[in-house]
Design a protein around this nucleic acid. Sequence first.
DNA 1: GCCTAGGTCCCGTCT
DNA 2: AGACGGGGCCTAGGC
Lengths: 249, 249
Amino acid sequence: MIFLSLNDFIEATNGPKCRVFENPDPKELIEVLKKLKTSHVITIFALCDAFYKGRAQSTLDKGERLIIIKPDGTLLIHDSRSREPKNWQPPGSIITFSYNNGSLLIKSKRYNPREEIRITCYTLYVVITARLGRGGLSLEGSEKEMAEIINKNPSLIEEGLRIVKREAKTPYGYVDLLGEDAKGRLVVIELKRGIAQINAVYQLVRYVEYFRSTARREVRGIIAAPKISKNAMLILKRYGLEYKRVKIR
Amino acid sequence: MIFLSLNDFIEATNGPKCRVFENPDPKELIEVLKKLKTSHVITIFALCDAFYKGRAQSTLDKGERLIIIKPDGTLLIHDSRSREPKNWQPPGSIITFSYNNGSLLIKSKRYNPREEIRITCYTLYVVITARLGRGGLSLEGSEKEMAEIINKNPSLIEEGLRIVKREAKTPYGYVDLLGEDAKGRLVVIELKRGIAQINAVYQLVRYVEYFRSTARREVRGIIAAPKISKNAMLILKRYGLEYKRVKIR
DNA sequence: GCCTAGGTCCCGTCT
DNA sequence: AGACGGGGCCTAGGC
C-alpha cells in the first residue's frame, strides 16, 4: 500500500487516469476516497456484506464483490453474475466513508424516497480510482423514431390514412398517434417498437373507449408493431380492434 | 506489464483473488482474458468506443470507460454517471477478444434476439481479474410478500373479507387476489407495493369487467396500495372502483 | 421457447 | 416536486 502525501494526492487527481491501491490500509484509503469521490469513479474489490433499507429491505451476505462508486452518487454492488447489481443506489445519493474495527464502512443515503445502504468491507483486495468520461451515446430505433417515420409516411399503416396528432392527451393517458382514415373515421394508433403485449392492448382499449364516448363518429383502434403476442391478439380482436404489422427499417 | 508464463497463469487462476495489470500490452493480455473469461470477472479501464446493433442500434464515442465482463457472459460499459451502463449485453452472451492494430477488440454476441457489441480499446489503463462470489441476497418487501400478508389477514382490506384465490387467471391477465366480502360479493383486488398509478387502475378495470360479464353476482374492484396517484384515483372512481390504503409494516 | 408481470425498476419529460 | 410511460429495459416464473 502506498501512503498518500499531498504530492501523491495531486498526482492522483491531475496525473494519470487511474490509480491502483493493492491491499490498502482502510484508514489511509478513506482519506483518498473522501477527496476523490466527487470527481473520480471508485472501484473496490472487497470481501463485504451489505444492508439495504428503503422501498424494500435486503441483506447481502459476506462475499467477494465489486463495488462501484460514481461522482454523481451512484453506488453499485456487483457479483459474478447478472447484468443487474445485487444492491445499488441511484444518482444523487450521498456517500460517506468511515473506519470501524479494521473495516471500511461505506454508507449511502438518499431522500425521496428515503433509502440507505451500509456496506462493511472486511478485506480490501484492490481499489482503483479513475476519472472517466461521460455521455457520447447516440441511439437509434426508439418508439419516438418509429412515430416520426409513420407520421411522415402514414401509408405504412394503411392507404388514405392521415395523421392528425401525435402524443394526443386524453384523461386516460397519451395516444401515440391519432389519425383519420379514408372514410373519415378517427383512428387511434398505439405503437410498439418490439412485441406488442397485453398492456399495449389495454392502453389502446381505454383510448378508444374515451374517443368513442366523446367523438361523434366512428372510432377505430390499431396496434402497430413488428410483432404481437398471441394473447394480446386474442384480446385485441375481442374488443374489435386491429393489428398492423409495421417493421421499421 | 507482467508477461504471463504458464506459472503466472496458474497463480492467476488459483492464487490471489485479484490480479492487476497496469498499462498491459493488448496482445499479451488477450491470452490471459481468453483463459479467465469463464471463471473470473474482468474489469477494464480503457479509452474505447463501442458499437451496438440489435433490437436498436447505438454508437458510443471514444472516451474513458469502465468495462466489466462477467463469467456468465454479462458485459457492462460504464461511464462516470448513472446507474445504468451506457452499453451492455445480458447474461448468456458470448464474448471474444482479439487484437487489431494496437487495440484490444472485444466482441459480444447473443442470439434471440440477435445482438452484438463491438468495443475497440485504444488504450488500456488498468485491467483487473477477480474471482467474485455470487448470490447471498435476501429481499423483503415485495408485492408477493404483501399478497401473503393480506392472504393471512384479509381484514387489512376490510372486515368480513375472505380470500378465495391468489393469482387467479383470467383471459385478461392475472388477478392478484380474488375474495368474497361479507355480503357475498366478489372482490377483485389489485395490489401495488408502491404508488398505484393509472396502469394499476386499467388492470383492475379489465378484471372487473371480465368477472362482471361471467360471474352472476355483484363484483367489486379494489386497489390496495400505500398510496395512489391523483389521476389514478379519479379514474378509479369514474369506474366505480375502490381504493384501500394498505401499508405493510 | 413464448408470454406475463414485477422491479429498491431507471430514466426522460412534462406539468 | 409528482406523474406518466418507454426501455436494447432485466429477471423470475409458468406453460
